[in-house]
Amino acid sequence: MSGIILYSSAIILLVISFLKDREKTKVALKKAWKSFESILPQILTVMVIVGALLAVLDTQTISRLLGSQSRWMGVVLAAVAGSIAIIPPYVAFPMAALLLREGAGYMQMGAFVSTLMMVGIVTMPVEIKYFGKRLTLLRNVFAFMFSFLVAAAIGLVVG
């Protein structure tokens, strides 16, 4: 769905740009290719690692880890699992809902969803390429710690 929107917007903008100025459009496409090509090795690496990781660490394994844990230990495990996993939201939210029904707590799911979206250990090579090691590491560490705050707030309000 978002792919269709993205592609149609890109094509429409490209056509408008081409009609207005051919040379500029050529430069734009050259730049697009150059920046895509420069990030390609990292992207491909991430793709393969995600495949290997998720094949080993599947939904059942995650739910077993988070199903029946003591409160904070479960939150820590959930936060770690979310940091490593890359699961698109349309899979992750129903999965979290399922885990809740199977006995996982709201706090654990809060931590899981939060690190899943904010922390990306596997995508770090891509992030480092743009932002350097230091900022990438700091951002992910902060996002990880922040997720415990989110977990606590959700435990307070929902759990």
Partner: peptide
């Protein structure tokens, strides 16, 4: 994952190129 990237990255980079010029 490859399919997801294919849906996302090419149009994003084209639009970024356009934005840049």
């Amino acid at each position: 994952t490859f399919k997801e990237m294919l849906m996302l990255l090419p149009p994003v980079f084209v639009m970024l190129g356009l934005l840049d010029v």
